[in-house]
Design a binder for these strands. Structure first.
Lengths: 184, 184, 184, 184
DNA sequence: GATGAATGAGAATTCATTCAT
DNA sequence: TATGAATGAATTCTCATTCAT
């Protein structure tokens, strides 16, 4: 996960993975059929966690606004715990050979979008969010905002060193992204 | 640009670039020292265009809300005209060997963030945007929302085939991302 | 070693080395970082043998004249056993990118010069060689004479096919190069 | 000449030659059919000068000892004037693809050897040099001693900075290499 | 399970040579 | 004569994958 996060799919060598894991070169091939399967596996694992959180939010209590806010807060918290995982999740969605175009990673991404979009849709129906919201666009907006903000935190462009700074990031994100969906 | 957009940095062969450009293999090396420099150059070119547009918006007339909305609309329009350019700009920033970590691409990204952040800062000062906005987070939120939404359009997850659909995306983006910054 | 000797540094392809060694192309890169390191390694190995012989002569018994004569005889004998090694040793020292200018090969060459020069210096002090001998020049003269004479044997310009011819070359070399250092 | 001297045949690029000469890339091909011809031409020029000097010595006045001494002194003097030319002369004899094995450079080298060998042969016949001298070996010994000593001067291993140091090198060379051929 | 040498196809890079201007 | 862009074959280097131990 760390190596993929650092160098991307093509840039990461099996040798790097083995070294990082502290095992012999060949052992990687004992556990994974090939490089694709390795990445799929890593991505799937990360996405599973994230999707589970999205689903938990979606199926949990509270208004749509609160569910979306929870997702934002969760994402930022995950970033704090495992920034590398966030990078894999965020960065390997697209630039992977088969991942985005077809295959499980894309499906999982679409699933994430659709869960968020559903929250928006329900919220709009219930009057918790503006009636004319575009669920899918709202979802990609939210996820994209999370992605780049977190990436910028990883890169040190957005400050997220202290507890207080992280709280400020969370609040700003929620205010803008969820607040922007509030009924007029 | 097209080839990088299509396959990503590592996935794209010099041979592809040459073929796409309709020139001989070796000629690429007449103009670029190596693959890195080639991408760097392509990215720089795209960023320049985008930065110019950001600056034009920033220095143009209108309230901060209108400037930010203009940026969103411009980005979506660029996407319609040159989706490949958008992909390079958006997707190749990070997973590239030296691009994001250090060097000109990162600087240019920071510049983009800072231009948008400045608009937000001024808007907040003038009362056009909420006073407690976090300029940098607002900027990465806006740019990230653009990125993933456009990417999703490229990938066909967000519908953007017709004129009307594109208008809807624009409106939704602006409503959420700029609307979310409105004073309470 | 054989391939370098045959074609020189630039003329020898890694593929040649692999074929000659009877291994797969890539394996060469398993053992050597790159072509430079390969040659460096080959040279170092050869020099080590030669330096060892020089040292043995220097530390062995006999007058300086006898030590120098021993070196000449040894060099000619090595040539008979392994002409390719001699060629690498002799010919690839200089025209190689980094070898002679700086780095270990040059150091080793200087060491060879200095061992021979020391023998000369001691011999001069003991009255076995002329008192006004220039040790360093004497050393490069001896080594250079060996080099070109052996090269010419390799090239067939100096006859060295039979046992008797080789003996004649040895004697002539020693007479001229060592004899030329005798006290007047 | 300088570029060939610096990098050897394969290591020298046409671009280097053009840059060193201060002319455009293509112009090199206006004057030389190809790289081989360029090197041949350079070598031939250098050898011609050297061969002419050897011949002049051979056909000039004085005993064989004096003729050989003159050659040594001339070579050292040439080195002082044009060290690069010496390197081409010395270093490109062998490691060139076709040069030494067959072709004009090898012929010229053999000619040089034979001129010197003739001087030795005559000197031996006249009693100026030892009767049992091996003319060819004596020639390669003399030329080899010159080669490596001059190379070592170029490389800074043998000191040749001042007028006095150069005189000392000349004397040492002559004493050893010519002195070693003196009748016993 | 574990190791790391061995393989070879694929991609980057170099550079002599050609050619239009 | 002079220029330097254009070409593409030759070569180095990389790295996923296999395999014997």
């Amino acid at each position: 996960m760390r190596v993929f996060a650092e160098k991307g799919y093509h840039g990461c060598r099996i040798a790097d993975v083995a070294r990082q894991a502290g095992v012999a070169y060949g052992l990687v091939y004992h556990y994974f059929r090939n490089k694709d399967e390795l990445l799929e596996s890593v991505c799937a694992e990360q996405w599973t966690i994230f999707i589970r959180a999205l689903r938990a939010a979606s199926e949990g209590p509270g208004a749509a606004t609160e569910q979306l806010a929870g997702i934002c807060r969760f994402a930022v918290d995950v970033f704090r715990t495992a920034p590398a995982a966030v990078r894999v999740l965020l960065l390997e969605v697209v630039p992977t050979p088969n991942a985005f175009r077809a295959g499980s990673t894309r499906q999982t991404f679409e699933e994430a979008v659709s869960i968020v979009a559903d929250i928006v849709r329900r919220g709009a129906a219930r009057g918790e969010l503006r009636a004319d919201a575009e669920p899918t666009v709202a979802a990609t907006t939210l996820l994209g905002a999370l992605e780049l903000t977190l990436t910028s935190m990883v890169a040190g462009i957005v400050r997220g060193g202290t507890e207080e700074e992280i709280e400020r990031v969370k609040r700003a994100l929620v205010d803008q992204v969820v607040g922007g969906l509030a009924p007029r």
